[in-house]
Simulated scan of single mutants.
Amino acid sequence: MLKVMIIEDEPLIALNLEKLLEKKGFEVTGHASNWEEAHTLFHTTKPHIVLSDIKLENDESGIDIVKQLKKMNDFCVIYLTSYGDDAMIEKALSTNPAAYITKPFKEIDLNAALKLVSSKIKNKNINPDFYYNKETRALFYKNAQIILTKQESDLFHICYLSKGFFVSMANVEYAIWGEEHVSDSTRRGLIHRLRKKLHDTIFEYSSGLGCKVDKIA
């Protein structure tokens, strides 16, 4: 089940969105109305989708909040907006939104946006059981943290930063061991341990290509 977090400072709108989302089979992880609430909720619930109003109370911007959250991990964003000026749209585009919904919104518009986003996530073949926080380098499987050694964490992180592409063993070795000489058994042992901890699903190794992290948001 895909998880959705709502960023909206009007409680009635947030509750209405929650009901509509749950009706469509999504899990709503909660509501946030400012940066502090959004940061805490995002960190603890790890949503796949963020549904955010652009203009919040106290002159806060949903776009700025989304930008900060994307530093922690990637996700799909749908913006709610009653603003149509070019400058605002241009700023929102910098966060690569999946869809926009104009307020006051209609249920049919929300459904269309959700179908679009769900399709994008499925087409990426993302495993929703895994979540990685780039900021803290914490990796989770089904909401339980996977405990990694420093070298395992370094290996995963360098591959995550090039997600979807192989990272050569030369680059991996330099990032982890620097100029130090490393034996084949040491390299193989590190790769084997990480693959085992990740259930051999989102981490791939090829002797000719290197290592790759894929199928994770």
Rank of each mutant, 00 (worst) to 15 (best):
S153C: 05
V4T: 01
L93E: 11
W177S: 04
K91V: 06
V28Q: 13
V4E: 01
S183F: 05
S153V: 02
A38K: 01
L41H: 00
A99I: 02
F203R: 02
V172C: 10
E37C: 03
S119E: 14
L17H: 07
K55N: 13
K196Y: 14
M5R: 01
L15M: 13
A112G: 07
D9V: 02
I126K: 06
S206L: 12
P128T: 13
M5D: 01
I147R: 14
K122C: 06
S162N: 10
K120N: 14
I13T: 06
H39A: 10
V28N: 08
M72L: 08
N58W: 10
H157F: 12
L51T: 00
K23I: 10
A112E: 14
L190I: 07
Y160D: 12
I54S: 05
G208V: 10
I202A: 08
F26Y: 15
L93S: 10
K134P: 06
L51R: 01
L21R: 01
L148Y: 03
Y205A: 13
A32P: 00
F140A: 05
K70T: 03
S168F: 04
E152K: 11
E57D: 15
F75E: 04
L116P: 09
K122Y: 11
E18L: 06
H192I: 12
A32S: 13
K67P: 00
L148S: 04
T40R: 11
K122G: 04
G189V: 11
D74M: 07
I54F: 05
F166N: 11
R137D: 08
R188T: 14
S52N: 01
Q145P: 04
A113H: 02
E37M: 05
N125E: 15
A144E: 11
A170V: 06
G189S: 14
P104R: 11
E107R: 13
Y174E: 15
N125T: 13
L41F: 02
Y100S: 05
H192D: 15
L69K: 02
A170T: 05
H39N: 14
P97D: 03
I126Q: 06
A98G: 15
E22H: 09
W177L: 08
N111K: 10
S118I: 05
T40H: 14
Y132K: 12
H31E: 11
R188Q: 15
T149L: 11
K124S: 09
N143Q: 14
L93V: 06
D154K: 07
E8G: 00
N58I: 07
I78M: 05
D154I: 02
D109Y: 01
L114F: 05
L190Q: 08
H181F: 13
S153Q: 12
R193K: 13
W177N: 08
I65A: 00
D200T: 03
E173D: 13
E179L: 08
Y83T: 07
D9I: 02
I63L: 04
T201S: 09
D86T: 13
P97M: 02
V117M: 03
K23G: 08
M72D: 02
E8R: 02
K150Y: 08
